[in-house]
Design a protein around this nucleic acid. Sequence first.
DNA 1: TTTTGTATTAACAGAATTGTTAAACAACTT
DNA 2: AAGTTGTTTAACAATTCTGTTAATACAAAA
Lengths: 213, 213
Amino acid sequence: MLNSKTMDTNQRQNKEKEILTAAENEFLTKGYDGARTTSIAKAAGVTHAMLHYYFRTKEQLFERIVDEKFRLMAESTLAALGDSSLPMKERIRTGVANHFDFVASNPLLPRFVINEIVSRPERYAFLHERAKTIIDTLYRGLQADIDRAAERGEMVQINAKMLFMSIMSLNIFTFIAYPFMKPLMGDLMADDERFLAERKAENIETIMKRIEI
Amino acid sequence: MLNSKTMDTNQRQNKEKEILTAAENEFLTKGYDGARTTSIAKAAGVTHAMLHYYFRTKEQLFERIVDEKFRLMAESTLAALGDSSLPMKERIRTGVANHFDFVASNPLLPRFVINEIVSRPERYAFLHERAKTIIDTLYRGLQADIDRAAERGEMVQINAKMLFMSIMSLNIFTFIAYPFMKPLMGDLMADDERFLAERKAENIETIMKRIEI
DNA sequence: TTTTGTATTAACAGAATTGTTAAACAACTT
DNA sequence: AAGTTGTTTAACAATTCTGTTAATACAAAA
């Protein structure tokens, strides 16, 4: 089964993976500047020389993480656009719900991505062209669908981008501010699972009332 | 007029102030870890030895900034609670508007505060006790006012903390995500001033429709 | 069993960054 | 003018962190 010359391939993959997992955690909580390769190595249970052996530099290790995370962020963002085969109100309701769930399962993601873009904008400038084209197309479609639904009297007329920003705001901020709000909100956030369910319902309600006639 | 032994007091204050201004900008955009004392000194037009002469350590300089920013954050947050002497709907409408304006004039503040708390939670644990007490009191009052307004049929019954989180989400996220959304939203955000006015109106509308019967 | 390529360790090198210090300097006081 | 005090500079010390290297262990293939 094993075709590597010397080391068990699974073991190697496990070590690489453990470093990646530790790196992900370190980078996502502390950012590039705050992360320490020694601390990542320690958390992964390897010497820091090994980390460099596998990933050469901190920068390269970071890039592995960042690539994956940016893709994931794009994917989760698209979830908020909803399924265009559904009736508009259902589409928006499930869009909000799915986006919330997506962010809930990657709670550190948005803050990380935003921080990266703010602290090193030049590094990500190349993404803009591509992202903008995709987004423009998607929005044109969504806006047209909204306009039609509004004409049929199913919902109010509203700017698709504005609605989209509201969905992102409500869902993402919940998790960005979580560590900050939790100690302050006491009872309300005492039971995490229950709070998240309530918050999700509240965000859906807020958006649905916004589009109600 | 000048009572300092050797240096013009105003000049000294200016130097201190210039360092503080440069430090504020550096810390708020790059965070503690990303900030460089040499880079702060350079931006302030002094040698880095001078920075240490005035503020001893990076840590102490940072604390000056952080203290002020945390206070400002608390202040701006309270704005969202609104003026309790107003009728409830007016109170909420102006609360949202004032909070938006506050954040608009300190756009880097929320991200900075949140990042600090996430990346070094132990450092700010001592704030929780105090903040929680204040918040509990304020919310009890707000919730009671909301309950009364709901009984009078002026608005829907809603959990005050949930409403508050929605206001914070909508207003703060607008500015946290600004550098991230701007290149993608093209036309909508082309004219900053106009976009902010529209976004403010949209956030108010979203909250007002949420509390409408 | 020798060979070969990979994995691992420990020690070290280099760079960047923070912080210190001694000496020069400027301004004010007496 | 001499002394005092606070400011500024330049050089340097110390630390921390990233990255390298040389030696070694190890496992499989020949």
